[in-house]
Amino acid sequence: MTSLAYDSTAMLGRQLQRIKHAPGVLILTQTMPISMLLFFGYVFGSALAMPGEEYRAYLVPGLLVATAAGGLMTGMFHAAQDSHRGVMDRLRTLPMSRAAVPVGQSAADLLTTALGMVPLMLVGLAVGWRIDSGPLGALGAFGLLMLLRLATTWAGLFLGLLTRSEEAAGQLGSATFMLPLLSNAYIPTDRLPGWLRTIAEWNPISAVASAVRDLCGNAAPAADAAWPVAHPIAGSLAWCGLLLLVFGPLAVRRYAHNGR
């Protein structure tokens, strides 16, 4: 275990050095949700039944969750990039812990995501979002966001290792951008047709978005919604736990055996 911790720290360092050398991608992924907040909040929001400020307050937790769920895309991209380069082969010939590559990768990712969410929250507070619950609720919400990020990153790492090329991973990753559209992240689900509402509410993103809104005191969970949204904290924990339980071991296995 000490070797796992030590090797993972080394891989975390590598990831941070890479970001330092090429910060462009990071800046883009961090500014994207802010521009979406302004675009959705002011352009689309003006056509919605909900008053503008109320909609923007609804939108901020949704965008935070969508950002966290972006771990799926970044995980896929990083795994595909690494696995198609010779450096992964060198790592596999070293007497290091097999899990250190994905562990280091996701640790670096959590760090940058946590920092990257701060500007989005600040802009959110400026346009009408409020934390009405107090520091403990806010901390809980933040913890759930990080947990979702971790879970989606591991799912992404595994899926990225399955793709045949960096391009394929990039395209598939971009498609995951659609996932928050089919959830309650950007719009309430209660006026969707029944079957569509069911699908949207069983989307893990919906559970976490409802949990963040609940923990920040923005909105109480809808009692008539599907179970993960009606009980959003338990629903979020269950979803993230399930994703980690499935994709964690798969990703570690795949990293150790890829190409064999």
Partner: peptide
């Protein structure tokens, strides 16, 4: 060689 290489971004 072609079986193992370095990280071009570092």
């Amino acid at each position: 060689g072609q079986s193992a290489s370095v990280d071009v971004e570092l």
